[in-house]
Amino acid sequence: MKSGFRGILIVVLVVIVLAVFVFSNYNGLVASEEAVNSAWSQVENQLQRRMDLIPNLVSTVKGYAAHEEEIFTEVARAREKLFGAGSLSEMADADRELSGALSRLIAIAENYPQLKADANFRQLSDELAGTENRIATSRMDYNNAVQSYNTKIRRFPTVIIAGIFGFEKKDYFNAAEGAGQVPSVDF
């Protein structure tokens, strides 16, 4: 009789411990996944911010250097590519291309002293440089969040909970090297 009671007590205790274990791990995973999502929304915000800057920038440069058509097409093409990107790695590649195209667009100011001196252009290129820097920052934050999340779902014992509730590995937002370069003109 006594030993039966003790048996039940042990079972109850084990169940409680297990439940606490599952809950805390599950909640930790949810928090970690949310951190990844929120970091991603920052990346998207900053990418959008750059998209919004492009028309102004292009039209300002066109005002002084209308015949540099090659670079304008290049920017437009990279912009379209980013819009149409499906996967994260496609997006990262398109992002790098657009960064490169925009930095070349800014750099042609070296050949047009009037453009370089234009207050509007300077302001826009500061906005662009700032936005590129924000993109780099938010990308780094996102990748750090993904790293901590991915580590968590592979680590014991959370790996069990992740398996049961279907938490999946997330992709990094990585382009090839040189992606984070800030386009800059030394004024």
Binding site: A35, S41, N45
Partner: peptide, 13 residues
């Protein structure tokens, strides 16, 4: 607004 709502980068990064 998003960072305020999610408490995102402030607490996390």
């Amino acid at each position: 607004i998003t960072i305020r709502k999610t408490g995102g980068p402030r607490g996390y990064h």
